[in-house]
Simulated assay, not measured.
Amino acid sequence: MFHRSPIQSFARHGMLVLLCVLAVFPLYWMLNSSLKNESEIFTSSIFPHKPVFSNYTYAFTQMPIVRMAFNSFAVSIMMTMLQLATSLLAAYALVRWRFRGKGVIFAILSLTWLIPFQSIMIPNYVLVNDLGLNDTLLGIVLPFSVSTFAILSLYQSFQSFPGVLIEAAQIDGMSDWSILTRLIIPNTRSTIASLGILQFINAWNEYLWPMLIAKSMNHAPLQIGLRLFVNSDTNMWGSLMAATTVSCVPILLIYLILRRQIVDSFVRFGIK
């Protein structure tokens, strides 16, 4: 059995500690800056000499932070639910049904995964604008109602599902809808939940498309609201850091509550 020397263990753990510090330090600097006044904000002090909370007061009075947090949750949840619904139907159809052109459809789906969203952003913007959905939450969600990654992930999961059980259900007279909702989904809920967590995180971090659609803070997610706040008050860096700190709290709480499931999700689909 191979045993690491104390020096190797110390170096390994020291490197991990250093990486953790590098990852956490920007968050600390954000919190530290949010507690500084305007005369101290550009200093390199590790701790604020006279902590102030006026930055938070100003941020809450100038920005509808609660409304923007609701917008972020609404957009992320709607994107996730729509992507899961369309992916479940598409993956089941590709796995269970045999029809002409199935291979071509699967190949096209796989190729669309390689197309960057920026290349189709302008046609999507024109469509959303023609539908009158500009500066609305639905306009942000609509182009992301289908996810190729989710379809291919569920396709692999459904392929490994025992076909004997599905054949037995068909003999018993169950329809395709009943097989999907009463047999396959309950037995693959861990995979679906893991995929849902990943899709929620991706939707929460989406920036470029919401930036084009959202024109006001009342219809903007948190990230876009912060950008609009920068444009309106360029020099209020303390208030910006305060608003940014508040915007990090919801997703941080979600991570603390679901950290095991989030890690499992990255392991499950990261390997694939």
Rank of each mutant, 00 (worst) to 15 (best):
S190N: 14
G163F: 00
I151M: 09
L154Q: 07
Y155M: 11
G139P: 01
N202T: 12
F149T: 08
D176K: 10
D176T: 07
Y155G: 05
A168S: 15
A168G: 13
A150W: 01
Q199A: 13
G173M: 07
R182K: 15
G163E: 03
L165H: 00
S160V: 07
G173F: 04
L154P: 08
R189C: 10
S194Q: 15
L137G: 10
Y155F: 15
I192L: 08
I171N: 03
S153C: 13
S160C: 05
N202K: 12
P143V: 07
L152Y: 09
M174W: 07
S175I: 03
R182F: 12
D172A: 01
G196N: 11
D176V: 04
S194K: 10
G139C: 02
E167A: 08
S153W: 05
F161I: 00
S157V: 15
T148R: 09
L142Q: 11
L152C: 05
P186M: 08
A168W: 01
I140H: 10
I184C: 06
I151C: 06
R182A: 13
L180A: 04
I166G: 03
L152V: 12
S190H: 09
V164Y: 00
L195P: 03
I151R: 03
P162N: 06
I151Q: 04
I166D: 02
I140R: 11
Q199R: 14
S190G: 06
T181S: 13
D176S: 15
T188L: 14
Q159S: 10
I184T: 08
A169V: 01
I184K: 01
I179H: 03
Q159A: 04
S153D: 06
F161R: 00
L137H: 09
N187M: 08
E167Q: 13
I184P: 03
D172R: 00
V164W: 00
F149Q: 03
T148W: 12
S190C: 05
A169T: 02
T148E: 12
G196R: 10
P162A: 02
R182V: 07
N187G: 02
A168F: 04
I185V: 15
F200K: 04
G173P: 09
S175C: 05
F200Y: 12
L142P: 11
G163P: 02
G139H: 02
L180P: 01
S147N: 12
V146A: 14
I185G: 01
G139D: 00
G196M: 10
L195M: 07
S194W: 11
Q170T: 12
P143R: 05
F200W: 13
L154K: 07
F161A: 00
G163S: 13
S190F: 09
N202H: 13
M174K: 11
T188Q: 14
L142N: 11
I184V: 15
